[in-house]
């Protein structure tokens, strides 16, 4: 799966979780950029991403998340191995 496709699917998860269908979501997007993106929503985004891609994020990976791009890179790395 290409990084673009992963980004598209994660962007869809982010929009759906936050109830913001028109929000611009790019690799650079962070929680500060979209109203309502708090720790509870972040949990939901992580769990939905895990379910979508059939992976489990490690504790260290969760701690390192700062932006959508970080999540995309972790998922891409996992899918590549």
């Amino acid at each position: 799966m290409t990084a673009e496709r992963i980004e598209d699917r994660i962007a869809a998860i982010v929009r759906e979780t936050l109830g913001a269908p028109d929000a611009p979501v790019t690799e650079a997007t962070t929680a500060r950029d979209i109203p309502g993106w708090d720790s509870v929503k972040m949990v939901e985004i992580i769990l939905r991403t895990e379910e979508e891609f059939g992976i489990t994020l490690r504790s260290r990976e969760v701690d390192s998340l700062r932006s959508v791009g970080d999540l995309v890179r972790i998922v891409a790395g996992r899918l590549a191995t």
Partner: peptide, 22 residues
């Protein structure tokens, strides 16, 4: 409902941290 999901992830992460020594 939100908190159940949150606790699922947090507990899993906490136990992993305990075992990792990181």
């Amino acid at each position: 409902q939100e908190q159940v999901r949150k606790h699922q992830l947090y507990l899993r992460k906490f136990l992993e941290t305990l075992e990792s020594g990181e």
